[in-house]
Simulated scan of single mutants.
Amino acid sequence: MSRREQIQMTPDEVRAFLDEQRTVICATNGVRGYPHLMPLWYVVRDSAADGGPELWAWTFAKSQKIKNLERDARATLQVEDGTEYHLLRGVMLECEVELVRDLDAVTDLGTEILGRYSGSPDGTLPEEGRGLVAAQAAKRVGMRFVESRRASWDHRKLGGVY
């Protein structure tokens, strides 16, 4: 077994890792040909296609990310953790991005995202948070990241031997 195979995460490990982490770096193709990298909060939903994890996020409709995705619907996502080599782990996803503009769907997504990050144990959003989401939703676009290729790594699996 190669080192690459040894550090690869299983599908269950990928799901647990994505559920645990808080920020994804989203790379879109910028107008000048350079990658445009931005952090996003996200939620993990089950994919309709295979039941695997699917990342969803929202952002302002006028953002550079959305302009880039309107031109080219491809994005690469990276979620990573660890500060020392033997603890590094992460997931990289190459995706096609579906832009969601339906106001009810965007509002539901925003409620789900803010609920995840609100700090409440059950992820529910207090009423004032719901008002904030409703006020923001009309200016936002949902992003469904449909995975086409995945790479993962968990250096902890090597047990300190390199």
Rank of each mutant, 00 (worst) to 15 (best):
A135D: 12
V91Y: 10
R130A: 06
P126D: 13
E112N: 01
P126I: 01
L103R: 12
L132M: 14
S120P: 00
L109T: 00
A135S: 15
L132W: 11
R116G: 11
G110K: 04
D104Y: 02
E112H: 09
M92R: 14
V100M: 12
S118L: 06
T111W: 12
D104L: 07
G110T: 01
L93H: 03
T124I: 00
D108K: 08
G119P: 05
G123E: 14
D104G: 03
A135G: 08
G110Q: 07
L132N: 07
R116V: 00
I113L: 12
P126K: 11
S118Y: 11
L87F: 06
G129A: 09
E96I: 01
G123Y: 11
V100D: 07
E94M: 06
L103W: 04
P126G: 10
E112C: 06
L87A: 14
R101N: 10
G119L: 12
L99C: 04
V100F: 07
L114G: 02
D122F: 02
D102C: 03
E127I: 01
T111A: 14
G129E: 10
T111Y: 11
T124D: 15
L93T: 00
G90Q: 07
G110N: 08
V106I: 04
E128Y: 13
C95D: 09
T107P: 04
L88T: 00
L88N: 05
T111G: 10
E94K: 05
R89L: 08
T124V: 01
A105Y: 06
H86N: 13
G119R: 10
I113H: 08
V133D: 08
A105F: 06
R130E: 11
D108S: 10
D104A: 15
E96N: 07
E98P: 00
V97P: 04
L93S: 03
C95S: 10
L132V: 02
L109N: 04
T111K: 15
L99G: 03
V106A: 12
R130D: 03
G90T: 01
L87R: 15
V100I: 13
V100Q: 09
G123R: 13
L109Y: 07
I113N: 09
T111F: 11
E96T: 03
D102A: 10
G131P: 00
L88M: 14
R116L: 11
L132Y: 15
